[in-house]
Simulated scan of single mutants.
Amino acid sequence: MLTEPVDLDREELRETLARGWRIDVASLDYRPLGFGSHHWVVIDPAGSRWFATVDDLRSGRAGEDRDAAFAALESAFLTARMLRDEGKLEFVVAPLLDRDGSVLRRVGLDYAVSLFPFIDGESFGFGEYRSERDRHEVLRLLGRLHEASPVLPSGLTRHDDLTVPRRAELLEALGQVDAPWTTGPFAEPTRLLLQSSAENLRTALDRYDSLVAEVSASTSSWVVTHGEPHTGNFIRDRQDRLLLIDWDTVALGPPERDLWMVVGDEQADLAAYSNAARSAKVSPRAMQLYRLWWTLADIAEFVSWFRGPHDRSADKEAGWTFLSRALPIRSELLD
């Protein structure tokens, strides 16, 4: 997130890091990055650095309530640890274990913190891969990831249920577009945008449901997937190694859950993927499903933001920019 949470007690975060990971915290430097989680660089008196990630357990992204969200994050981070340690995937940036062998600790009732090694290297913003070399390197890593699925014990890693998060809220919002919304500066613009895009959005949801019916018919080829292998989740370190971060979205699903985000020139790209994966067959329907899922999930998230009480902030400005560009949904996503 671009803004630090106002209701998180920094001193409590400092104490949690000290108790859990035995760090004498000299400073906490907030880093405004991405959407979803909050991030700090943690520095001790000797100048050693770590990267702390804090998730809001009330957000609804990981689970329906705080305990369910904590359990889901814990499962995801344990999956990342196992992929790195048992799967020998050196590119997986997994959380550090605390003094009790845990990957996650509560910070009060509403937040959870995980701690990661600090990576000295080059990070990238969200967008297109800069070169074919980078794209093919990512595809080879994803092939290795998908092939590592057998190292995971049954029941550890969640299965992608293919549902659009906050879909019920989105449908409820579509039914309330005829009366003014007064919850904040982006409420009325959101209502008017939904009102003008209602038919387009309902068509997109129907199209998504038909794709789900096709893709979910067989799960035999499902593998462990990262879920968001975009440019913003890779770091190239000083040894020129490409490293994959942010494992909270890890899940068992079709390979296309990852591939849709990376594959451009299909023939050349899938050749790179097949260097590490046993199968390079791609389902066009599954690729389309995940392209559409990404758009629908973001629309539902930002509509939820703006239907509720909110102020103007850097996060809300960015959310409105995305929402206003996402609706109406482009026709190529619905074909």
Rank of each mutant, 00 (worst) to 15 (best):
F77Q: 10
A280S: 15
F234S: 03
G125D: 10
F322K: 07
L170R: 00
F186W: 15
L13R: 00
F234H: 07
G264P: 00
L33Q: 09
S331L: 09
R81H: 10
A326S: 14
A52Q: 09
D335S: 12
G34A: 11
E256C: 02
V212G: 05
A72D: 11
T16M: 12
D315C: 01
V41Y: 11
A179H: 13
S221M: 10
P328T: 07
R325L: 11
A268W: 01
W305F: 14
L333W: 04
R14A: 08
L17W: 05
Y111D: 03
D161Q: 03
V224F: 00
E188S: 05
S274G: 14
R81W: 11
I245S: 00
L296K: 06
R291P: 02
G125Y: 01
A326V: 05
S283K: 11
D65R: 10
R307F: 09
A68R: 10
A217I: 06
A217P: 04
L171D: 07
E266G: 05
R191M: 03
V151K: 05
P150V: 03
L211N: 01
E214F: 11
G264F: 02
S218C: 07
D206L: 12
P5E: 10
R312C: 07
H39G: 02
L115Q: 01
L96N: 06
S197K: 09
G264V: 04
L171C: 03
E332L: 09
E11R: 08
A213M: 11
A52W: 13
S114C: 05
D29K: 12
E147R: 13
L270P: 00
R19F: 13
A300H: 08
A271V: 09
S154H: 13
L89F: 00
D311C: 09
A26P: 02
L205E: 00
P117M: 02
S114L: 05
Y208Q: 07
G127C: 02
G87P: 01
E169I: 04
R66S: 11
R325S: 15
V177A: 02
L156T: 08
Y30S: 06
L252S: 04
A18L: 10
S131N: 06
R130A: 13
S197Y: 08
W222M: 00
E12W: 08
G60Y: 00
V215P: 04
V262A: 02
A80L: 00
N233M: 07
A72W: 08
R167K: 11
R99E: 12
V138W: 06
E15Y: 08
F124L: 09
E128F: 06
L17Q: 03
I299N: 00
A318V: 01
S75W: 04
V262S: 02
A286D: 06
D9V: 12
A173N: 05
A314N: 09
D248V: 03
V113Y: 08
R285N: 09
R312W: 14
V164Y: 01
L13E: 02
S59I: 07
L33I: 15
R291F: 04
